[in-house]
Amino acid sequence: MKVNNVILQTVTKVATYIILTFAIYLFLAGHHNPGGGFIGGLVIASAVALLVLVYDVKTLKAVFPFDFKILAAVGVLIAVVTGMGSFVFGKPFLSQSFGYFNLPIFGETELATAVIFDVGVALAVLGTALSIIFTISEDISLWKH
């Protein structure tokens, strides 16, 4: 059955960009302010949940052609390897360091190694949430394809 929901699809095309921009802002604000990898990943997952509500699983599987369980595993691997990277410098597990660098556009910017750990956390949360959403959205009509 073909339904006409062009208003919802047009709104979603704009709102998804806003939600993803807000997710990146929350991810980058996590060093000093409320935010971080966990809720950044959750907001990205909510944007994908909105897309899969308005469009369908087939389109989303064509847009994201990878397995989300593997994505969660890669995220955990990045987080653990980043934590173990402090063994090279003889420091305890999950130690972090930061420095101030002169970047071309942003001027003097604080770069911290905790951001790489946050990338791992965000990927793990994103993979877990999206695999849950895609698993509970499967119905019996999926087995016929």
Binding site: K2, V3, V52, L53, Y55, D56, V57, K58, T59, I133, S137, E138, D139, S141, L142, H145
Partner: peptide, 14 residues
């Protein structure tokens, strides 16, 4: 969408 279609996430919308 749930009260209009009865299903939340469909596999193929066409």
């Amino acid at each position: 969408k749930f009260i209009e279609r009865g299903v939340l996430v469909d596999y193929d919308r066409n």
